[in-house]
């Protein structure tokens, strides 16, 4: 058990070093506003993809309504700071909790469904959330909620992302996390092992939804605005794509998927008319060649590199 603690501390140390480097580069303006924006966006997308991976990858529940929870977080967070004038920290907490609560309420009836049916239901619910927001005048309706102060800094986004990654990683390596994995592997066997499958499905869904809400608060407080058009089902597809591209059920995969796709998107921003065409072609080609995602369900670790590159390929191929 001590080795686990040591490993965690080492990872945390590496995060601190990474943070210090990027923060310094930002400070001396080596990283300009364009890439600063994209770094924040990457962090937000990492939160979204690891939280969706908890639902889709670990628990095996096919959800594609994540943008709805992102929206709930963004709007409740903005209400706290803009309408009520309360601090950002509170917005983060309330945004997360509201999203989680909604995830719980939605998850309870819908998680009885499985496979494609659950996917469609979550897609529909995500859209219902968006359409409801669209019709609430209090939060600006179709023109969105404007004038949100920029409270999200690199430091906030970075450390919240690290925190969420740790929470989800620890969750996976605990009894409730193993229950979720068991449900993914074989729901009927899981139930006969004494696992209340509904409880753990809803638990994973609630946690995932909550963290999507956190991402929403960060999002709204960086881009000054919460607009219904940012939370369509296309946004949910985006997040799902990151998870599947990285490798469903792999934390490092989800992170890599988010970083990679956001970065590709940013690089292509110079060619606006070609951007989505190239993006979609990349996606199709990657999926055809690596349907199991970049990492499969494996985790990327230093051990892989020690064994050499060829083994890396083999390990992921076996899925």
């Amino acid at each position: 058990m001590n080795s686990i603690k040591k490993h965690d501390l080492a990872t945390l140390g590496a995060c601190a070093v990474l943070f210090a480097i990027v923060q310094t580069l930002l400070f001396v303006d080596f990283i300009g506003p364009f890439w600063e924006l994209n770094i924040i966006l990457i962090l937000i997308n990492v939160i979204l993809s690891v939280s969706l991976n908890l639902i889709n990858g670990y628990t095996g529940q096919f959800s594609i309504g994540h943008a709805g929870f992102l929206a709930v977080g963004a709007y409740t967070g903005a209400i706290i700071t803009v309408k009520l004038g309360l601090p950002f920290e509170l917005a983060l907490v309330v945004g997360t909790l509201c999203s989680a609560l909604l995830g719980f309420l939605i998850g309870l009836p819908t998680l009885r469904l499985n496979g494609d049916y659950l996917a469609i239901a979550t897609l529909g619910l995500g859209e219902i959330i968006r359409i409801c927001i669209l019709n609430i005048e209090y939060v600006g309706g179709a023109s969105g909620l404007m004038g949100i102060p920029r409270f999200t800094t690199f430091a906030w986004a970075f450390w919240i992302t690290v925190f969420i990654i740790f929470v989800i990683k620890n969750f996976k390596n605990s009894a409730p996390g193993r229950c979720c994995l068991a449900i993914r592997e074989n729901e009927i066997a899981a139930e006969t092992m004494g696992i209340d499958t509904t409880k753990y499905k809803v638990m994973a869904f609630t946690i995932g939804a909550g963290f999507a809400g956190t991402a929403g608060v960060l999002f709204a407080h960086y881009f000054y605005i919460a607009h219904p058009a940012s939370f369509t089902f296309m946004r949910s597809f985006d997040i799902l794509t990151m998870v599947v591209l990285g490798g469903l059920g792999s934390m490092t995969g989800a992170i890599t998927g988010a970083v990679l796709l956001t970065a590709i998107s940013a690089v292509l921003a110079e060619y606006p008319e070609w951007r989505m065409v190239i993006y979609s072609l990349t996606l199709i080609i990657l999926m055809i060649n690596r349907p199991q995602g970049l990492f499969g369900s494996k985790e990327l670790s230093l051990k892989m590199f020690r064994l050499g590159g060829s083994d890396n390929g083999r390990a992921t191929e076996s899925k």
């Binding site: 799902l240 999926m287 199991q292």
Partner: peptide, 9 residues
């Protein structure tokens, strides 16, 4: 799910 992502692509 991979085919679904391809369809989205």
């Amino acid at each position: 799910i991979a085919i679904l992502i391809t369809a989205i692509g």
